[in-house]
């Protein structure tokens, strides 16, 4: 598969050039956040308080890694189901997040917010946490350390493989009818 290398953080122009189905290799910094961290971030935004991490142009990876064995940067770190985070996503995009990484389709409100905010949702391969781990070169806690695996970690990745799942133009890799997908 021909994959396009992309340097993080992405700009609006970078995002607008992407189309659903494009394979990409991401390199640069990203933040992790899953259910509990999303809840806290959105509660903080609603309360009008400052966020503990900068979301402007950020890439947010939905993952909760396993602990690193001694001498390792991180344990298994594949994507979790993105649809669970749909209720929080428009707020995170409005706060500046530019790219999201998870697995599975998003709802119409997220698709609309991606178009409005010129942002992109990538899918990584679910269940490939031992493989994706090898693309992660650094891992530090950025916020909410008390949440353990659900804390926000700052990762540096090199050639992290993803597919554009929902683009900034309303396109979705999941949208085609099943029969068409099977024969395409």
């Amino acid at each position: 598969m021909e994959a396009r290398p992309l340097r993080l953080p992405l700009s609006a122009a970078d995002v607008l050039a992407l189309r659903a189905g494009d394979a990409c290799l991401l390199s640069g910094p990203m933040l992790t956040a899953r259910d509990a961290a999303h809840r806290r971030l959105v509660d903080t935004l609603h309360a009008g308080r400052p966020l503990p991490v900068a979301l402007t142009d950020a890439t947010v990876y939905y993952t909760g890694p396993t602990p690193a064995r001694p001498g390792m940067v991180i344990g298994a770190a594949g994507p979790t189901t993105a649809g669970r985070l749909d209720p929080y996503t428009p707020a995170l995009l409005a706060a500046g997040a530019r790219a999201l990484i998870g697995k599975g389709a998003r709802g119409p409100a997220v698709s609309a917010a991606l178009q409005q905010c010129r942002a992109v949702y990538f899918a990584a391969i679910g269940g490939a946490g031992a493989y994706l781990r090898t693309c992660i070169r650094t891992c530090t806690v950025a916020a909410y350390a008390d949440l353990g695996t659900e804390a926000i970690y700052c990762l540096t990745v090199v050639n992290f493989p993803v597919i554009v799942a929902h683009d900034a133009h309303g396109g979705s890799v999941y949208a085609a009818p099943a029969a068409a997908r099977a024969s395409s």
Binding site: P65, T66, M72, A76, Y131, T134
Partner: peptide, 11 residues
């Protein structure tokens, strides 16, 4: 890789 590195298959 999971077998080689003794890392869980999935997080």
């Amino acid at each position: 890789m999971a077998r080689r590195d003794r890392v869980p298959l999935c997080q």
